[in-house]
Amino acid sequence: MEGVDTVALDDLSLHIEKGEFLAIMGPSGSGKSTLLHMLGFLDVPTAGEYRFEGKKIAEYSKEEIAHLRNKKAGFVFQAFNLLPRTSVFENVKLPLLYSDVKESLWDKFAREAVESVGLAHRMFHEPSQLSGGEKQRVAIARALVNKPEVIFADEPTGNLDSKSGQLVMEIIQRLNEERGHTVILVTHETYTAELARRIVRMRDGKVESDTAVNHRREAKDHFKK
């Protein structure tokens, strides 16, 4: 409502190390998405401070923040957000357009990213020809094409059946373990959250609990050749 301020995040302090796999859980309205958006440079706190790699985000200009999103962050959304009538290859290439990666490397990077999510055979298909799970894997390829520090995933399995969801989570887990990408995942499914190494539970904009996952599960490895 206009004129009424809603406090999305309140009295929250969080430290995330490079290479972590963090799951943020909480009921809707708990502020988990807002937190993810702030961590992913999509939103700025009205009060308080966010430091990324030791530097205050408030000190960056709009341009620099756009650059941060491009270079340091890769986003995976619940709704996939692929460009329609645009091939998988072109969709994955999109972040490179805004990057300072040399143009001669774009095709190579995009192809590698598509291959790494197992969609080489879908390279020139359009999103409308793909299943939900495949769409999300394209989105993951797009998120990692710029080799970002952090991959932000907002309910990546929310729109998928469990089998596709599992496959998507396997890829995300592997990105963290094998390539060392920091992964920050928002989910409301305990099953999905337990794939992470650390779970932050939120309620009413506050951190309710912050625990390491003791018995970490491996997403079953359907995907290994």
Binding site: G40, L42, K62, E63, A66, H67, R69, N70, K71, F75, N81, L83, L94, P95, Y98, S99, R142, N146
Partner: peptide, 16 residues
């Protein structure tokens, strides 16, 4: 609108 939001999330500046 969504395309614009996506492009910005992927690192497009206002100028882009």
């Amino acid at each position: 609108t969504r395309e614009i939001g996506l492009r910005k999330a992927l690192g497009a500046t206002e100028n882009d």
